[in-house]
Write a protein that binds this DNA or RNA. Structure first.
Lengths: 231, 231
DNA sequence: GTCGAAAATAAGTATATACATATTATCGCC
DNA sequence: GGCGATAATATGTATATACTTATTTTCGAC
């Protein structure tokens, strides 16, 4: 089929499907024509339709089942994808100069609250690395990290390069979990992030592992930090 | 090529590529073998390799360029995908009973702070809908929404069905933005969410539009709410 | 009407072939 | 060494054909 603008065939099919969903030609709950029929109607290959509809299913806008066909869900679960860069690049992308200050780095016994989140094969003692990331000299986020010495022996120093950045370049993980929540700045946290005690701060928790845990980190952002994406 | 377990060929190729990235067979910054070479090595079609590597690129783990080939990025920008269900289903997925209470619904002049976020063709007056979502009778989140009457005329009532849910079933959008951050509970918010004033709360903002804005909503979650995903 | 088995079907995938296109490398000229 | 043009290349996409597989429907026995 002919393209419009720079769109490729499968993207044009996807957008036509979106248009039909939006116009309620295909209302919520409805089963849509199968791939072969759509291909005939739109003058393209079944594989092209498949590619287009799979993309919409990945975004949560369609539900697909072999034999069962493709439906517009009654209550779609929309998917939102956020980009998670390394901290320095997050800062630089905001047009700011990134700074870094290592605050602590010692092997310590892992507190039970952290240990409980690590999963199987967790070591009893890990490196506890605390660092402050600055944007144009002002606190941007605090990195509070437990790090498996098996993956980052003490010879690896985080005096100038953050653990956040070192890990990305040196360790790849098999599984990871990411979560966000809000925390209240206590006096210590407020001092480090230069904000009022009691301020609401966004906290990002990430745990990664291979056969054993690699790291558990909490990034606590200065007030006002927001994660954004397009839907 | 032969599959392992229930994995299909392209998934097996993807996982082999991940294994090589993880093992640093393909270190950060390295250009990896091109698709035709990998296809020959792995005993499958180039299209199969293409499918596998595109998936990794979509996750931010590889960078691809026509002619330039495929590289492991020096500093990958990992992508994290969150599922955004309707609020009632978010509650029910936690094994809790969803409740709903409409607190306010009136056409009002849109405050400048909200209006500024709406983009072109924003109406001066919109429905301001405030509702509380309950989980097992306890406040779960507050829905503070500005809604374009062109998309939801006043005849549409939100006494028992939330705007959040009604919109999903009745209006599809062309563009949307999603962001979240942390806010501090003031006295009013604390009363509604049954938490202490000063508590840190996760706030999720969503704006959707077609030719004109559809809605701008802020969901403010009770303390402890976390957005989670796997990496 | 229920149940298990079999058939049918629609999506999921694999491949080969071909073409498109965004880059990167090379070349000739200055 | 720089520049613009050209060639080369590796990914991106389209198609046809075939096969796989997860469902859904149908069927026959009871």
């Amino acid at each position: 089929m002919t393209e419009t603008g720079t769109q490729t065939g499968w993207q044009a099919v996807r957008d036509e499907a979106l248009r039909r969903i939006r116009a309620r030609d295909w209302p919520p709950g409805a089963r849509i024509p199968d791939e072969a029929d759509l291909a005939a109607e739109l003058g393209c290959a079944r594989a092209t339709v498949n590619r287009a509809l799979r993309a919409l299913a990945e975004d949560g806008l369609l539900e697909r089942r072999r034999k069962g066909g493709t439906r517009v869900p009654l209550t779609p679960v929309r998917r939102a994808t956020f980009s998670i860069p390394i901290i320095r690049q997050d800062i630089e992308a905001r047009g700011l100069t990134a700074g870094y200050r290592l605050l602590a780095d010692a092997v310590e016994t892992v507190p039970e609250a952290v240990r409980a989140t690590l999963g199987p094969n967790a070591p009893a003692r890990m490196r506890h690395v605390i660092a402050l990331h600055l944007a144009d000299g002002a606190p941007f986020c605090l990195e509070d990290r437990w790090l498996n010495p098996a993956h980052a022996p003490e010879a690896v120093r985080f005096d100038t390069l953050s653990a956040n950045e070192w890990l990305v370049g040196n360790v790849t993980f098999a599984e990871g979990r990411l979560s966000f929540g809000a925390v209240t700045a206590d006096a210590d946290l407020a001092a480090r992030l230069c904000c009022a005690p009691g301020a609401a701060l966004l906290a990002l928790d990430r745990r990664t592992r291979a056969e054993a845990p690699i790291t558990a980190v909490r990034l606590i952002y200065a007030p006002g930090y927001r994660l954004e994406t397009v839907l």
